[in-house]
Design a protein around this nucleic acid. Structure first.
Length: 939
RNA sequence: GCCGAUGUGGCGAAAUGGCAGACGCAACGGACUUAAAAUCCGUUCCUGCGAAAAGCGGGGUAUGGGUUCGAAUCCCAUCAUCGGCACCA
């Protein structure tokens, strides 16, 4: 069945008449409750379930319902032919509020053919260097098989309004779209069907693209990119090489080429390195999962158990940039909440590292603490069970217990380990350490509440002033020593706040802050410790045992001993490294990536084999905003000039507005910032940050106020909405629902309301003649505006302009409704006012406003018009209504001249008979006068 | 447990120190129509006095306090919902 708009020709003519029949056909076939071939009559209930997306009483579906009944009773073969072949005799009553089904495809074709939203780069034809640039970007989607849902176009509509608005304001606007197309679903599908992921991806992209085009977005499609395109991932691999070939120089606080490193082994400091790290291994799926793919200790897909297991993995040294990633948030116009989320994720904490001597051993145990001032209260040490020193220090008699505990811990998942919040567990190692502050002998334990991955993997237990240590000490009967005196009345034991140091000879009487500084200096002098900063952020696990991702541009070469292999980067001329074709995408089950099955591909040379891991899905999205600046470049990941222009400007971030969901608040946005900083340090890009202004759109819930999901059956498909109400109504409704950043439920009735508004705009200028054809209304005339019309027009210009700037699209639409309501009753419709109004409406409803612009035979294209300005003088009235309050309560109002002085206002208010009645016999204590607004009389 | 956001009619919301509920939905009434749809007009927070209408009054923005001439808006506490983090030393 041909979808409307899917064929280049003839779609305008065909679309209208058979539409309802087509809907009926589609509904009937899409529903399993309707046995078409058998011709069994259907019940009203079944019909209602077919059409239950809109309530049965809504006009369109009830008409549909009656049509279905008629068809069903009269001739069952109505459903046996493709509906578009049937010339439905009843289609004459198929009245749309306005002919959006003809207007919208028409303008989409015009925009496409004339390429009017193409933004030329400097040096190209039509590039106007006098205009300022504006880069407005959406988070590009993963083109899933399910197609677009109504959540996607929410942010996309917002950015489209901004893009269209900014063009009219005289900016060169970069507004591109692309596909984040590497990823698990296409690969899973390949495993099931044997269909190559590239094929699935191509199909899904085509579907997404046609859906987006149908909404009328003004993307520059010439700049479309796809992360799975070799012409794109060649440069993803190239950037990886830059990272691999760099190190972080702590002296300059920058990434530098590895050749500037003076140490012996550069492999120790590269920003991309190989390490054995514990990963989320899912035996059932036969693959490693990213942290975000693990929910409550189980795989997000399938709910299979996930275990921690050490594996050899590629890592990126993002932790080197932790400090800058925190500090440089400052200059960005991001929601404070998102900045906070990133800061918390990075988790910087200041403190000290302290060395504890082990009794009868040479080794020392280094612990990290944020409270060095509590050192005197340290009555035991705890090591993470996996800590490497455990083997060394554990005593003979404690060995069996320690080994058993370690085994038990290893078997636990992270979830189980965290679950045991109530009962602390642990085992004494038999060894003792010496507290450097008071030289006391303290026992060394191991416990799973100490994590190997944070700090040094060891802590000094200060039970008096740390909840966890207190719990542990109570359970195992360890001594508790108070060393901080609270300033309030609370008991000292269990007090974790700042107070006054006690029982601590060196720092007694000092505040916690002073004590921290003094004890750190004291330790430093004696070589027993130093100030230190720690981060929760870990290095980025960058390899995946999957097929559908970017292969690493790395080979492993045999060493002289024939045993060990050493990684080496490929030369940039050898890019792209394209994944081999595979028959079988299935995971091997051993943790070896599927690429290992491509034996020929792996063999790079006699001595060297290719890396078989692939990059995670984040890789492609880490730099796509850069590629959009210059997507055709085959010499460089982005041309220098193009990058400078589109990513330039006075602020630290390049993209002027970036809109997307909060789900990427941490990972994508952090990873992209990290890559950008590396490229910046190496001199490849001109700004330290990728995204200047960030806005998160809120989630759209189903009509039942629940999250949209297949299982709940409350998913709204944009195609269905556009089919019924048109793309302009869809766009406007998405914006009218409420504030962009807020979570809000969908309502089909609401869409209807917006469709009515757009139809009123249409009928304001168009009327239907005898023959049922739309023609320009005779009411539209070249007449002067009344004073009231002048005022409302300028108020509308002001409000819509301001609201677009602040992304308050819902109230902008409200104001346009007020405008239309006011003009609906007018006898003649002033052309000049409508001309201005159409420009204001254009970013929201581009098809409708373009068509009306053309119908009124206004000069040029609406998209080329300059944005209107407003004149404050039309907004000011001679008289204003002044509210009179008595003790803050409104008692009356009066009209006063705009020029009335405070004294005049006061006198008029006091003279008001109603007010006089109310204040009779009372003494006026005070009057508050707000010019042009109110008078408040206090008695 | 910690951090953050939010809380206003039957519903989506507006107002960010000055007339609470703009605009839209829904409901009800009216006009047009043979009828329906569509369209247009009107009404709709709660409550007291009045037979009713007009009119006059009281209360109301999660709850309880506070600041202010004046609070949905600012401050404190509590509750609820949503999101993030979660033994991070």
């Amino acid at each position: 069945m041909p979808r409307r708009g899917s064929e280049p020709d003839g779609r305008l003519a065909k679309a209208g008449r058979s539409r309802d029949a087509a809907i009926a056909f589609k509904l009937a076939f899409s529903s399993n409750v309707f046995p078409i071939s058998s011709g069994v009559p259907i019940s009203g209930n079944e019909l209602r379930s077919i059409t239950s997306k809109s309530r049965p009483r809504s006009s369109r579906s009830s008409r549909l319902l009656s049509r279905l009944r008629v068809a069903n009773s009269k001739s069952i073969f109505f459903f046996c032919f493709p509906a578009f072949l049937i010339d439905n005799p009843m289609s004459s009553d198929c009245r749309k509020p306005y002919p959006f089904d003809q207007i919208e495809p028409k303008w989409q074709v015009i925009w496409d053919e004339r390429q009017i939203f193409h933004a030329p780069n400097s040096g190209e034809k039509n590039f106007d260097s006098r205009k300022p640039k504006f880069y407005v970007l959406d988070m590009f989607p993963y083109p899933s098989g399910a197609g677009l849902h109504v959540g996607h176009p929410e942010g996309y509509t917002a950015t489209d309004i901004i893009a269209r608005y900014k063009r009219m304001r005289g900016f060169n606007v970069l507004h591109p779209m692309g596909w984040d197309a590497f990823g698990l679903p296409a690969e899973q599908y390949a495993i099931k069907s044997g269909q190559h992921p590239a094929v699935t991806t191509r199909e899904n992209v085509a579907k997404f693209k046609s859906q987006l085009k149908r909404i009328g977005f003004s993307y520059d499609w010439q700049r479309e990119i796809n992360t799975t395109d070799p012409g794109y991932f060649k440069w993803t691999q190239w950037i990886f090489l830059q990272i691999y070939n760099s190190w972080f120089n702590p002296k300059t606080n920058k990434a530098e080429p590895i050749k500037t490193y003076r140490g012996k082994n550069p492999d120790e400091v590269r920003l991309a390195y190989v390490a054995d790290v514990p990963v989320n291994w899912c035996p059932e799926l036969g693959t490693v999962l990213a942290n975000e793919e693990v929910v409550d200790g189980k795989s997000e897909v399938g709910g299979f158990p996930v275990v921690r297991r050490p594996m050899r993995q590629w890592m990126l040294r993002i932790t080197a940039f932790a400090e800058r990633l925190i500090n440089e948030l400052e200059g960005l116009d991001w929601p404070e909440g998102i900045k906070l989320l990133q800061r918390n994720w990075i988790g910087r904490s200041e403190g000290a590292e302290i060395d504890f001597k082990i009794e009868n051993q040479d080794a020392k145990i280094r612990v990290f603490t944020t409270r060095p001032d509590t050192l005197y209260g340290g009555t035991f040490l705890v090591l993470a069970p996996e800590h490497s020193l455990v083997d060394l220090i554990v005593t003979e008699e404690q060995w069996p217990a320690v080994r058993a505990y370690r085994e038990k811990t290893a078997r636990k998942s992270d979830l189980e380990r965290a679950e045991l919040t109530k009962e602390k567990t642990g085992v004494f190692t038999g060894a003792y350490a010496v507290n450097p502050a008071n030289s006391k002998k303290i026992p060394i334990w191991i416990a799973d509440y100490v994590l190997l991955g944070y700090g040094t993997g060891a802590i000094g237990g200060v039970p008096a002033h740390d909840e966890r240590d207190l719990e542990f000490a109570k359970k195992f009967d360890l001594p508790i020593v108070e060393v901080v005196q609270p300033t309030g009345k609370e008991p000292a034991i269990g007090f974790t706040g700042e107070g006054i140091a006690i029982n601590s000879p060196i720092i007694n009487g000092l505040t916690s802050a002073q004590a921290k500084r003094k004890i750190a200096a004291w330790l430093e002098e004696r070589g027993q410790g130093k100030r230190a900063i720690n981060y929760k952020l870990r290095d980025w696990l960058f390899s995946r045992q999957r097929y559908w991702g970017e292969p690493f541009p790395i080979v492993w070469e045999s060493e002289a001993d024939g045993q060990h292999r050493k990684h080496r980067a490929l030369d940039q001329t050898e890019l792209p490294v394209v994944p081999p074709p595979l028959e079988d995408y299935k995971p091997t089950g051993t943790g070896e990536p599927p690429l290992a099955k491509a034996k020929d591909w792996i063999r790079y040379s006699k001595e060297a084999a290719r890396e078989t891991n692939v990059m995670p899905q984040w890789a492609g999205s880490c730099w796509y905003y850069l590629r959009f600046c210059d997507p055709w470049n085959d010499k460089r990941f982005v041309g220098e000039k193009a990058e400078k222009y589109w990513m330039g400007g006075p602020k630290p971030g390049g993209v002027d507005l970036y809109v997307g969901g909060t789900e990427h608040a941490v990972l994508h946005l952090l990873y992209a910032r990290f890559w950008h900083k590396v490229l910046f340090d190496l001199g490849y890009v001109s700004k330290p940050e990728p995204f200047q202004r960030l806005v998160n759109q809120g989630i759209i819930l189903g009509e039942d106020n629940q999250k949209m999901s297949k299982s709940r059956g409350n998913i709204v498909n944009p195609d269905d909405v556009i089919e019924q109400y048109g793309a302009d109504a869809f766009r406007c409704y998405e914006m009218f629902m409420g504030p962009l950043e807020q979570m809000k439920p969908w309502s089909m009735r609401g869409v209807e309301g917006i469709a009515r508004f757009l139809a009123r705009v249409w009928r304001l200028m168009m009327s239907e003649n005898q023959a049922g054809k739309w023609e320009l209304s005779s009411a539209v005339q070249d007449v002067d505006l009344t004073k009231a019309q002048q005022k409302i027009l300028h108020a509308t210009i002001k409000k819509v302009t301001g609201d677009i700037e602040s992304l308050s699209f819902n109230t902008a639409i409200s104001q346009m409704m007020i405008f239309v309501n006011a003009f609906t009753t007018a006898e003649s419709i002033p052309l000049s006012a409508m001309q201005t109004f159409l420009i204001l409406l254009n970013p929201f409803a581009p098809h409708l406003s373009s068509e009306l612009w053309e119908n009124v035979k206004l000069p040029g294209q609406i998209t080329e018009q300059p944005w209107p300005g407003y004149d404050e003088k039309f907004l000011i009235e001679d008289e204003v209504e002044i509210v009179i309050q008595v003790n803050g309560k409104v008692r009356d109002r009066m009209n006063m001249s705009i020029q009335a002085s405070e004294e005049e206002l006061k006198a008029a208010a006091l003279a008001n008979p109603k007010i006089q009645q109310l204040i009779a016999g009372k003494i006026v204590q005070k009057t508050v006068i707000v010019p042009k607004k109110l008078v408040n009389i206090v008695v």
